[in-house]
Design a protein around this nucleic acid. Structure first.
Lengths: 103, 103
DNA sequence: TGCTCACATCAAAAACTTTTGATGTGAGGT
DNA sequence: ACCTCACATCAAAAGTTTTTGATGTGAGCA
């Protein structure tokens, strides 16, 4: 896997409308799989597929409680994603605390 | 087009390895199409296809100079993308300047 | 132990994206 | 006016992702 494919993973997680709808639900707090499935009208295996992609990307984390799986937004995942996005789209000279001084 | 599809557009731009390689080239400064094509060993129509996606997403902007097209990173595009990413992945309660006070 | 429920995994089909090679378009030079 | 160069657009093929329905797995309860 190239570095570009590795970096692309978190953005792939964000580029499907159903996954964005899942994230919107998680913004209001932790939800278990069966609740998400019902709220978003997804099939069971469809939800499972999308949750795997979201968790693998790091922006969602999960917690088991008996038979149930609860999902929530991960703040460390968010921070990593934001940093990566900035890194990929900021000109070299401007990175870090851009100062503009000559030295 | 749903709001989710609209929001997904900027992340779609970021989730292809060739487009990430193009962004990396643009980080060191504006480049014209023919230079990018040569540096990244892409076909002419292939480059054109990817540049359209990058420009449509807002993270790259272009400038004509006679027959040549020059591409560069757009700082407003970057800022919008970062804001959108934060918005999509931050719990409702935490948004804005999170304070934690009771009122 | 055996049953059920919640979720994961699988394989095939459907939907989408990217690549390729051909052709279109418009700026600039002769 | 005509030619060439730089890039855009197109349509078909190749590749990838998503959906679907079936089956697997492991926790908890009778």
């Amino acid at each position: 896997m190239t570095i570009y494919q590795e970096q692309a993973k978190v953005f792939k997680a964000l580029c499907d409308p159903k996954r964005l709808a899942i994230l919107e639900q998680l913004r209001s707090g932790e939800k278990c799989a069966c609740v998400l499935q019902e709220l978003l009208d997804l099939t069971q295996s469809g939800l499972s597929y999308h949750m795997k992609i979201l968790c693998d990307s790091g922006i969602v984390s999960s917690r088991q409680e008996g038979k149930w799986t609860h999902y929530r937004l991960s703040s460390s995942g968010r921070e990593k994603a934001v940093e990566l996005l900035k890194k990929l789209t900021t000109p070299e000279a401007e990175q870090g605390s851009a100062c503009g001084c000559r030295r």
